[in-house]
Structures are given as C-alpha cells and as structure tokens.
C-alpha cells in the first residue's frame, strides 16, 4: 500500500507573467553571488526574464521597448 505523504505548505508564489517578468511573493531568500545579494525581500519582487534589464536581476520595464 502506498503511504500518503503529508502535503507541505507552499512557502511562496512564483508567477511567470506573459510578455513580462517573474513575480515572486512569499517566504524566500534571494541570492545573487555576482551582485552580492543575499536577502529575504518583503512584499513582492519582479525579476527580469528577457535579458534586457539594466537593473538585473530585477525587471526595469525594458521588455516593453
């Protein structure tokens, strides 16, 4: 018989916005060794996924241009 595993509670919500950035909200640790970032941001953050932001890893709206 298969043992039912207790489901863990999701700690964060990640949303890939169509034609837009990645929105992240919840209990997270963001790290970027290259930019010396290691933090638990409050509220939500938007990360670049088009490669064109001048403020990486964050979105700066450049995908619209």
């Amino acid at each position: 018989m298969e043992e039912k595993k207790a489901r863990l509670k999701p700690q964060a919500e990640i949303e890939v916005i169509p034609e837009g950035p990645i929105r992240i909200k919840g209990n997270i640790i963001l790290s970027d060794v290259r930019r010396d970032i290691f933090e638990s941001p409050e509220g939500e953050i938007y990360l670049c996924r088009c490669g064109r932001s001048k403020n990486k890893p964050y979105c700066d709206g450049s995908h619209e241009k």
């Binding site: 999701p10 919500e13 949303e15 990645i22 997270i28 640790i29 963001l30 790290s31 890893p57």
Partner: peptide, 21 residues
C-alpha cells in the same frame, strides 16, 4: 524558505516548496 538563486550568466534556480504559475 524558498531559495531563489540568480546564476551568473545563467538561469534562475528556484528550490523548495512553492506554487509556479
């Protein structure tokens, strides 16, 4: 907490327990 790692010249690695839309 969910780990969100920005890989140099690479992708975003997200690990832990979370929902992805």
């Amino acid at each position: 907490p969910v780990s969100v790692r920005v890989m140099p010249q690479g992708p975003l690695i997200i690990s832990g327990t979370f929902t992805l839309k």
